[in-house]
Write a protein that binds this DNA or RNA. Structure first.
Lengths: 211, 211
DNA sequence: GTCTATACTACGATAGAC
DNA sequence: GTCTATCGTAGTATAGAC
């Protein structure tokens, strides 16, 4: 019980303040235990940080499981299925980014994206790498684009959803609100879906220009 | 001289470690001076943090100046000019996100986006708010979309470029490289430009569906 | 397994010398 | 304007009691 409670708090604290900014005393206190419990269960601050990364990867993998499990087995010729798959993965991703729970761990990930440490390996291997690779593969199947083009397109597609977190405050200002309502989220998701179809169509058209 | 050197280091340190993670001693040492210089010039750690935010806003405003100055005066009827403007602003933004200098201050901004403090006001007022508002306005002019739709579209468009920073490590993994070459950047920019045209076309088509 | 006690290092702020 | 010295606080780690 204590270990899992420590981990929950650790994710929040590390996310908000970073590895150096968060304090083991603060984490332990918030978890209602003593600091030395961290040493015992995780071997120290660094160990707790890595455990937090693993837990985040597991959380994302869990959230994305349904979608990715189906999408991963779509075969080469199924352009329609691949297209639907791209949209479904992005919708799932948008929900994840907009979810309140992601507020805690998203900063953890973004920090690792910009200044990767060993923890990035865990995040990438555990969840994010597979997700992005699947998406790139689906884009390739849906449009017939070469691998490199499909990869670049996949990143721009994902960027639309990550903006919900990484540009959140700016977004809220623009919409003149202070929380994202279900209505807002639906509107954004509809926009992303429409954009995605437009982009995929464009990739197909580009391919036919250069035979 | 000392103040400006302190500020440069402060942006890097606060970006990497956050307000709480960075240490005044560390910043002062890296700037080759004593910690009390921070107290003298900026009144303390918090003052230095806010000064860093102002400086970052100024850096971005400077980088975006050419584009935004022109784009801001495009008038209501000029759909073609507005469309070109959208693409130009996004290209400038992509260059900014990919630039090595942005590696230092981008984490600062993203942190403020997810957990805004007073410093976010400065960033938003000084640069980011104007940029995004201009973009949303141009999207509206270029497509005739309602304000709310144009705002949401603007966010998704910007998201494509911010992914260059906020999902950087993941992106590099996918492309199986460890730095973004000029070739890579050109390819991404071309993709973003093409996506943007596709998205704007789609917005126009949607408008004609519902007259 | 969990907590208390302790050792040691580093933090930010301030006062005062130069 | 810039530095040194110092204070009080808070950080991690470890040893040992329960």
């Amino acid at each position: 019980m204590t270990p899992s409670r420590l981990l929950d708090i650790a994710i929040r604290e590390f996310g908000a303040k970073g590895l150096e900014g968060a304090s083991t005393r603060g984490i332990a206190a918030a978890a209602g235990t003593a600091m030395s419990a961290i040493t015992y269960h995780y071997g120290g601050k660094e160990g707790l940080y890595l455990a937090a990364a693993d837990r985040i990867a597991a959380l994302i993998a869990e959230r994305m499981r349904d979608g990715l499990a189906i999408e991963a087995v779509i075969d080469e010729g199924d352009t329609g299925g691949a297209r639907d798959g791209v949209v479904r993965v992005l919708m799932q991703l948008a929900d994840t980014m907009a979810s309140v729970e992601s507020e805690e761990w998203a900063p953890f990930i973004v920090r690792e994206q910009m200044h990767p440490t060993v923890a990035f390996e865990r995040l990438h291997a555990g969840a994010m790498g597979t997700m992005l690779a699947t998406l790139a593969r689906l884009v390739g199947i849906a449009t017939g684009a070469r691998s490199r083009i499909a990869c670049i397109a996949a990143i721009t597609l994902v960027g639309q959803t990550t903006a919900l977190r990484a540009s959140r405050a700016m977004f809220l200002r623009l919409l003149e609100t202070d929380t994202l309502t279900d209505d807002d989220l639906d509107a954004v998701k509809a926009r992303i879906a429409a954009n995605t179809h437009a982009i995929l169509d464009r990739l197909i058209a580009e391919r036919q220009d250069l035979p």
